[in-house]
C-alpha cells in the first residue's frame, strides 16, 4: 500500500497562446495541467495499480483549478488537495513550493511525492527540489523509471551523458521525465466519476510577497523572409544564391 502525492501545476494551454504587440495574450486561453505533470500522475497511478494505495493530487493556483483538477481525478487520482487564490496565477516557485510543502505536511504517511521535471510554462525544475528541501527528504530528478520494493525504491536518473541507477529509501521526492510513460486518456465514465471524487480546498493563507519579479515578458521579434519555393530544385537554387557551401 502506498500513499502517493503528485504535484501538478495548472497552466494555460501553450498551443493556444497568441502574441499581440509582442506580449503574450493569456485571456480566454483554456487551462490544463502541464504535460510532464501528467506523466508524473501516470507514474503514480501505475504504482498504485501495481501495489495498492492512494494517489493524491496536490495543486496550488487560481480558482479555476477547482475545475481543472477534474482532469487529474479522471486520469486516475483518487483525491485532490488544493489551495486556491487569484494571487497564485502568477506565483513564483518559492511560494508555490512553500504551499505545496504545507499541504503535504498535513497528509499522513506519505511514501512518495512526484513532480514533473519542469512545469509546462515556467519549466524551471525548482519546485520539486524546494519541496524536498523543506521536507528534508531525499530526492532525485530527471527520473526515467521507478521500481518499488518494500520501503525502497530503485530509480533511474537520466542525465545528459549518463544514467544513474539509485536505491533510495522512502519517503522520497522524485521529479520525472516525459519519457517515463504515456499518460492515459480518461474515458467518459471516468470523467463523469471524477466530478464525484473528493476535493479538499485547504484554508491556508497565501503569503503576499514573491521572490522573483518579472520586469518584462516579450515574444522575440522574428524577421523572416517567408518566401515560398515550389520544388527541391528551386530550394537548392535559393540556398546556392545565399552562398551556402555544398550547395551548387
Amino acid at each position: 500500500m502506498m500513499n502517493i502525492v503528485v504535484a501538478m501545476k495548472q497552466i494555460p494551454d501553450l498551443r493556444q497562446i497568441r502574441i499581440r504587440n509582442g506580449q503574450p495574450v493569456l485571456e480566454d486561453v483554456p487551462l490544463t495541467f502541464g504535460n510532464i505533470d501528467k506523466n508524473a500522475l501516470e507514474a503514480g497511478v501505475q504504482l498504485k495499480e501495481a501495489l495498492g494505495g492512494k494517489v493524491m493530487v496536490v495543486a496550488v493556483g487560481s480558482e479555476a483549478l477547482e475545475d481543472t483538477v477534474k482532469e487529474a481525478l479522471a486520469a486516475g487520482a483518487d483525491e485532490a488537495y488544493l489551495v486556491l487564490d487569484g494571487k497564485l496565477e502568477n506565483s513564483d516557485s518559492a511560494r508555490s513550493a512553500e504551499l505545496i510543502a504545507r499541504i503535504i505536511k498535513g497528509i499522513e504517511n506519505v511514501d512518495l511525492i512526484l513532480f514533473g521535471e519542469g512545469s509546462g510554462d515556467n519549466y524551471s525544475g525548482q519546485v520539486g527540489s524546494r519541496v524536498a528541501g523543506m521536507l528534508e527528504l531525499p530526492q532525485a530528478s530527471y527520473v526515467r523509471s521507478i521500481e518499488v520494493n518494500g520501503n525502497k525504491a530503485t530509480v533511474v536518473r537520466s542525465l545528459e551523458d549518463c544514467e544513474e541507477v539509485l536505491e533510495m529509501e522512502m519517503p522520497l521526492v522524485l521529479s520525472v521525465l516525459a519519457d517515463i510513460n504515456e499518460p492515459r486518456i480518461p474515458s467518459v465514465s471516468q470523467i463523469l466519476k471524477a466530478g464525484k471524487k473528493p476535493r479538499e480546498i485547504l484554508d491556508i493563507e497565501v503569503p503576499e510577497g514573491v521572490q522573483v519579479k518579472t520586469i518584462s515578458n516579450l515574444a522575440p521579434q522574428m524577421q523572416r523572409k517567408q518566401t515560398s519555393v515550389e520544388s527541391a530544385q528551386e530550394l537548392i537554387q535559393v540556398l546556392a544564391a545565399e552562398g551556402y557551401k555544398g550547395v551548387k
Partner: peptide, 19 residues
C-alpha cells in the same frame, strides 16, 4: 544542466534564497 537545475532549487530552499 540537469544536475545543476536539480541542485538549484534545493540549495535555494535550504539557504533561503531566491532562485
Amino acid at each position: 544542466d540537469r544536475r545543476g537545475k536539480e541542485l538549484a532549487g534545493r540549495l535555494a530552499q535550504i539557504w533561503r534564497a531566491g532562485c
